[in-house]
């Protein structure tokens, strides 16, 4: 009992550290990547390749004064950044990085991650409402309608994968795909011939759920100043940023486990945490690449894509998979 408790506490500490380090250095990677795509140098002054830029940014954010605008709802304003961070950290607890490296393997791992991810919209809502700023309110209404509508195709696609694997356990789903890339869920099988489409839907939804460009309507800076975090400075802003990058890492982890074989090697050699990290960082690099390549969509285009295209396709895929599972 006490060992389990210690296990969980250590795991949560490691999850926070992992999320924080990732957030700091993904910002650096994002800025460098953006700069490369836009043919400019990016942050390259502090340390080799600008690698000391994230600690400098962190110190700057932490030493700034926390300002609460007059007329803001103080409690909600303070709670929102914390709410953005906590679900992201909680989700790390059940993600298996390799067969041995998992804090608390649950038989409902997928469900738990979705349950906590659905709380993320609440943080944006409270932030927008609490800051008493019309741009923030508009941005949070947009961001929440976006994340609610993209949660549906994402969940349906996840259910398809769960049905094929017969388990909600992330570890079991990974182990199901062990032994070479032809076992991975991303490739079509007899039971689910539309798996590549599922993967694309899931990937689009994870882009939209993390409010990334081309779906970053919640912080459209050309229309809404900075969106829902317009009024946030210092570490409140920092927490929103960390939450966003932690969510990106979780999205990449979930995609890796559900579709790309988790920690398995593509050729069946040396499965382990290194393959997992390689896969998630490749996915994150794709996230960054997409963000700086595509222009922002409109809010109608965004909602139409979800309700008129992604949801029907994913529902059809679910029905087809259910039927074929009965046949084969």
């Amino acid at each position: 009992m006490s060992l389990t408790l210690l296990n969980v506490i250590v795991a949560v500490v490691i999850a926070i550290a992992f999320a924080a380090v990732n957030a700091a250095y993904l910002v650096w990677a994002e800025r460098r990547g953006a700069a490369r795509i836009q043919r400019r140098p990016g942050p390259n002054i502090n340390g080799p390749f600008g690698l000391l830029q994230p600690p400098a940014d962190g110190i700057k954010l932490m030493t700034k004064q926390l300002m609460i605008p007059g007329g803001a709802d103080k409690i909600l304003f303070m709670v929102a950044p914390v709410l953005a961070m906590v679900p992201a950290i909680m989700s790390f607890v059940t993600i298996p990085f390799s067969e041995g490296i998992v804090a608390r393997n649950m038989d409902i791992g997928v469900l738990m991650i979705f349950a906590f991810a659905s709380m993320g919209a609440m943080a944006i809502l409270f932030a927008g409402w609490g800051s008493r700023n019309k741009y923030a309110v508009m941005a949070s209404v947009r961001a929440v309608s976006q994340s609610v509508s993209y949660e549906i195709p994402m969940l349906i696609t996840a259910i398809t994968v769960i049905m094929v694997n017969g388990s909600m356990d992330l570890k079991a789903i990974s182990l199901n795909q062990a032994g070479g890339f032809w076992h991975w869920n991303i490739f079509p099988s007899l039971q689910s011939p539309l798996m590549p489409i599922s993967f694309i839907i899931f990937f689009i939804c994870s882009l939209a759920e993390t409010n990334r460009a081309p779906f970053d309507l919640g912080e459209a800076e050309s229309e809404l100043v900075a969106g829902f975090h317009t009024e946030y400075g210092s570490m409140g802003f920092g927490l929103f940023f960390m939450g966003e990058y932690a969510n990106i890492v979780i999205g990449a982890c979930l995609t890796t486990i559900l579709f790309l074989g988790g920690w398995g090697c593509p050729f069946g050699l040396f499965p382990g945490v290194w393959w997992f990290l390689l896969k998630i960082y490749l996915l994150i690099a794709t996230f960054i690449w997409i963000r700086w390549t595509f222009p922002r969509t409109t809010i109608y285009g965004l909602l139409n894509l979800s309700w008129k295209i992604l949801i029907p396709i994913s529902l059809f895929n679910l029905l087809l998979t259910a039927g074929l599972l009965k046949v084969f």
Binding site: I108, L111, F114, A115, F116, A117, M122, G128, W129
Partner: peptide, 22 residues
């Protein structure tokens, strides 16, 4: 417990909050 989080917190509360904001 997880369904409670997913449905009540993640869906119902957000829908209510959304309606209030609109």
């Amino acid at each position: 417990a997880m369904m409670q989080m997913l449905i009540y917190v993640g869906a119902i509360c957000i829908t209510i909050a959304f309606a209030i904001m609109l």
